[in-house]
Design a protein around this nucleic acid. Structure first.
Length: 591
RNA sequence: GGGGUGGUAGUUCAGCUGGUUAGAACGCCGGCCUGUCACGCCGGAGGUCGCGGGUUCGAUCCCCGUCCGCCCCGCCA
């Protein structure tokens, strides 16, 4: 070993001992006489002192030290003189008096200030990711990620889950996201796909009798990126046999509780609240509600219909809805501020925003369309009191939900209603199918292997594949796990009967031949004694983001890609040699 | 594919209604400094104003195109 101890581990018992420590020069304070350096390694920082009274040559060399030089220093650990201790760091009682300094490596002037790197542009941080990752904040993030992953592994191992790897070179599936394709040299014109998830393989593992499987696995989706979406991301993927939905939800709750306790020391509340998809939409306007605050949506159709405000009446008549939320204490907003709020609503897709101030009665351009009694009922339903602002959206249901759910979040932030906390919620009873207007057929809302809920199973089997109304009413035995308004995972009880699976393909308008070509191996497997099974996949990156307080998953991924799926450090993707393309039997169009 | 926003010194940003010499802070370089911890003080260097075109006597500023980052819609579970 070329060092005796980590910088951040130095404590008072080390006083008096002579040792060697190594690290990066973090900050330097060169007084000409005394030189102080904060030496940093992964564990933390330690102040070292160069004095001409202790070692003339080391002191001489120390003048030339610069940020991020890698050095080794040997010397005596001493108690800091009275009054010079630094209580703000764990090593603040001690300092090393260096008698020997070795510069292990020099560093060029940095492209950005490490201490203010959080403010530096992401493009720059990504290009020099090795420097960005050297920052304590990023190191903390990745250490937390490690502990969380270890938490999952330990917990699932304890519960007798087996970690089994599945192929990365796999087969393109037509449903779901766009695949990343990999050309096959040995099979001209044929392509592998990188997995969007190990879905089919984990089901096969259940058929194969492993009963409890998990994997911390990379998944790939060639879709456009967001702050919480990367083209490659990590799932905690698991599947179990002989279980029902409550078994899986219970296991995940206990697992989360364990991991939050062990990594953050936080005690989260279990069991998690459960909301049906419909209830979530009604009350919050989306299927991933942030449960840390109220501001719930209220249906106003009956009251709105009792006036003669044309916008409301039109919306209701054409099958739309009128819903509202209560902007607590916002009656003081000026006309101009209300205009801004309105254009915000419009940017979310609304045609307009109707508002009624509860202020000396009711103040609003639309108040005149409603009898006093209805206005009072509206206020009552929204629990609006003097000083509040009632905000209405009237439109098609999709628009109303979309706009109000976003306004709810916006107001929650603005009114400071969102306290730091971890509020989980399960969303259940999703529709099994979703009508695709463009393709004029049903799509599986979760995926085509999801079982209907028990009561709907016979309905689907007995029903006609063209019965749109019946099919739209079917509920899936699927569940999403939502944390603070972020979807962090989802799963379902799968179809384990071949006849049900075939019916599902029929409903989805996937022909026998097509099903055979695309999922034949799963259908085959279902013939040979498939146990009832189900599982879930958790989005690890999002979970770590929330647990570290990061604002983007890019801050919890060591080497993330930009919004154009470009790696600024390595330069991937890149052009390749014509020879490589030729071997792969590939000709490109452009460039 | 679409909407929004940004790109000026190594970095973060300012730069008025288009005007002659493009600034600040931090960093960098040189000097001074023996108790600092964002050390301090003095001095200095450092600019393809993303790129291309246009309008203009004159463009960092206006217009068009383009590239890149970020946020969002579509897309994606």
């Amino acid at each position: 070993m070329i060092r005796d101890k980590n910088c951040g581990d130095i404590r008072e018992p080390d006083i008096g001992s002579v040792m060697t420590i190594t690290g990066w020069v973090f900050r330097r304070r060169d007084h000409g006489g005394l030189i102080f350096i904060d030496l940093r390694d992964r564990s933390g920082i330690c102040q070292i002192v160069f004095s001409p009274d202790v070692a003339v040559d080391a002191h001489e060399i120390a003048h030339d030290l610069r940020a991020e030089y890698v050095i080794s220093v040997s010397g005596e650990m001493r108690k800091r003189p009275d009054g010079t201790e630094n209580p703000s760091i764990p090593t603040g009682m001690t300092e090393m008096y260096v008698h020997k300094l070795v510069v292990l490596n020099r560093a060029a002037a940095l492209p950005f200030n490490m201490e203010e790197a959080a403010e530096a542009g992401e493009a720059l941080r990504f290009r020099h990711r090795y420097l960005d990752l050297r920052r304590p904040e990023m190191q903390q993030n990745l250490m937390m990620r490690h502990r969380i992953i270890k938490g999952f592994r330990d917990y699932l191992d304890m519960k007798s889950f087996l970690e089994i790897e599945t192929p990365m070179l796999t087969k393109s599936t037509p449903e779901g996201a766009r695949d990343y394709l990999v050309p096959s040299r040995l099979n001209p014109g044929h392509f592998y796909a990188l997995p969007q998830s190990p879905q089919l393989f984990k089901q096969i593992l259940m058929v194969a009798g492993f009963e409890k499987y998990f994997q911390i696995v990379r998944c790939f989706r060639d879709e456009d990126l967001r702050a919480d979406r990367q083209p490659e991301f990590t799932q905690v993927d698991l599947e179990m046999s002989f279980v029902d939905m409550d078994d899986i939800l219970g296991l995940i709750e206990d697992m989360m509780k364990t991991i939050f306790r062990e990594t953050l020391g936080t005690d989260i509340e279990t069991p998690f609240q459960r909301l049906s998809y419909n209830e979530s939409m009604e009350r919050f306007g989306n299927d991933k509600p942030d449960m840390r605050f109220g501001l719930e949506l209220k249906d106003m159709a009956d009251l709105a219909g009792g006036g003669n405000f044309k916008v409301f009446l039109d919306a209701l008549q054409s099958g739309g809805m009128v819903k509202a939320i209560n902007g607590k204490g916002m009656a003081a907003l000026s006309r101009k501020e209300l205009d801004i709020l309105t254009s915000e609503a419009q940017s979310f897709g609304a045609k307009g925003l109707a508002w009624i101030k509860v202020k000396n009665g009711f103040e609003s351009p639309i108040a005149k369309f409603f009898p006093e009694e209805i206005l009072r009922s509206m206020a009552k339903r929204l629990q609006a009191e003097e000083g509040d602002l009632m905000l209405f959206i009237a439109d098609r249901s999709k628009v109303v939900y979309d706009v109000l759910s976003r306004m709810r979040l916006e107001l929650g932030k603005r009114l400071n209603l969102i306290q730091p906390d971890y509020k989980f919620v399960w969303i259940t009873d999703f529709p099994l199918l979703e009508w695709d207007e463009e393709e004029e057929r049903f799509q599986a809302m979760h995926h085509p292997f999801t079982s209907p809920i028990a009561g709907d199973m016979e309905k689907m089997l007995a029903g006609d594949a063209g019965d749109r109304e019946m099919l739209s009413s079917l509920k899936a035995m699927a569940y999403d796990i939502v944390l603070n308004g972020n979807e962090i995972g989802g799963g379902s009880i799968r179809i384990h009967r071949r006849d049900v699976q075939k019916k599902m393909f029929e409903v989805l308008n996937i022909s026998d031949t097509e099903a055979e070509v695309k999922f034949g191996f799963l259908l085959d497997a279902l013939k040979y004694g498939a146990p009832p099974h189900g599982g879930i996949a958790l989005g690890l990156d999002r979970l770590v983001m929330l647990m570290t307080g990061a604002t983007s998953i890019r801050d919890v991924i060591a080497f993330p890609k930009t919004q154009k799926a470009f790696c600024m450090m390595s330069g991937a993707p890149a052009l390749v040699e014509p020879k490589q393309l030729k071997e792969l039997h590939i000709k490109t169009d452009e460039v």
